[in-house]
Simulated scan of single mutants.
Amino acid sequence: MSECYGHKRELLYWWLLLLIILYNIFGGFFLALSYFGTDQSQVGRYISAKDTSTGRMGLLLNGLVKIPMQFSILLIGALLFTFFSLKPAPIYFNERSYQYLKETQPAQAQVFEAEHKLLQQDLSRQSTALLAKKEQGVVAPAVLSAYKETQQKVKALHGKVEGAINSTGYNAERTDTNYIFLYFVKNTLPVGMVGLLFAVIFLASWGSISAALNSLAASSVKDIHLLIKTAAITDKKELALSRLHTLLWGLFSIAVAMFATQMGSLIEAVNVLGSLFYGPILGTFLVAFYFKNIKGPHVFVAAILAEALVILIYNMDIVSFLWLNIVGAAGVILFSLLSVLIYRPKELNS
């Protein structure tokens, strides 16, 4: 009887795991569809190509390169977890925030450090024992169980330290997730490699930031400013307007970046922020492709309503952020169809 029950539990576990995987794949599909199909960075690549075949090839290569690049980013996280399982990890990776805690609450910090030291010793001993057993081809469930228990204690201690730091109100960042890689680079890599790595990061970020600001400025100038201002302007005036819009978008990006630091992992923050807006944009494109009879005013109102629905669902935390793309796209289509049924403007006689 117990064997049958255990078999059913295992079967249920694998079915739930499969559903979770499919759930995220489906939501991620719409996120990728929104990004590669409607994002200005991808559209810029397409319209700047010399012909249609070159543009398609560029988009295809960009999609193919995205897979190993994303895998490499996630692999770094897995490797860092393994590294700090074998080597002593700090009690908190944001050293400046923890230093502030030590200065304001020294007694509490000493208690944390004493517990952390014991846990790190246990973790190092257990991880070494696990590796030794693996090399011998021996299964050691007791050692593995003790290792998992120690990991839970380390996680619980980290939560206590994080809560104590957040209670001081010293830093707007609620976690130290984005400091793990920086701590590894600063304290492990040789000096020359650190400088080279930071130079590569700065060069890559400059290129992406420049492309983003230029595309945003071009869109706002062409699609908003020049449409509102009907009077013709000179090229010199348009260049000045473009520079002004670039400055404004730069300030806006700084504000968003300051907000994003409170969202935990930067990778997740980028996908969350994208999912808040990509869905209605994708829905607008889908309506344009497949519902030719729906006019612009209907789609505009539908996009606003769909965006409001996405933000409402995100604040209520009803579904995963990946599914916000589906909600936004489906919302635009649904609201567009309803608006056509509700409001049909009379056509003027020619």
Rank of each mutant, 00 (worst) to 15 (best):
N62P: 05
K117V: 13
A306I: 01
L80N: 02
Y92V: 00
I281T: 06
K229M: 11
F277I: 15
S2C: 03
M1E: 11
G195F: 07
A211S: 15
K153A: 11
G328P: 06
A109P: 05
F202L: 15
E162A: 11
D176F: 06
S85P: 01
G250A: 03
M1S: 12
L266T: 13
Q126C: 08
Y13R: 12
V301G: 02
H116V: 02
P68S: 03
Y35T: 08
S97L: 02
H245M: 14
V191Y: 12
R174Y: 07
L86G: 09
K148R: 12
N293P: 00
I67R: 00
K66Q: 15
L157Y: 06
A231F: 03
I224D: 11
Y170A: 13
Q108D: 10
F184W: 07
I25L: 14
L197I: 10
I73R: 00
Q136E: 12
A199L: 14
A156H: 12
L244Y: 05
Y23N: 05
V154Y: 00
A32D: 02
A302H: 05
E103Q: 14
A240Y: 13
M193C: 09
V194I: 13
I318F: 15
S336H: 04
V256W: 02
K292N: 09
A129S: 10
K133F: 06
L75W: 08
D176M: 03
T104I: 13
I21T: 08
E113C: 02
L334K: 01
R45H: 05
N349Y: 14
K155D: 13
E113W: 05
Y23G: 01
S48L: 08
N349T: 15
L80T: 04
S2G: 11
I281G: 01
F289A: 11
K133D: 12
A211E: 10
I342L: 15
I318K: 12
G6V: 04
A109F: 02
F184P: 03
Q262I: 00
G264L: 02
M263C: 06
Y183P: 04
K133T: 10
Q262S: 14
G77N: 01
L244S: 12
T104M: 11
G137F: 02
Y100D: 07
I73N: 00
L338E: 07
L18T: 08
P190D: 04
E347T: 15
I233S: 11
T128P: 00
Y46R: 07
Y98A: 01
Y290T: 03
L22R: 01
V191R: 08
F112N: 08
I224R: 10
F112W: 01
C4V: 13
Y170F: 15
L182C: 04
L19A: 13
A114M: 09
M263V: 02
S53L: 14
T284C: 10
G55M: 06
V65K: 08
L131W: 01
L348A: 15
F277N: 10
V340P: 05
L79N: 07
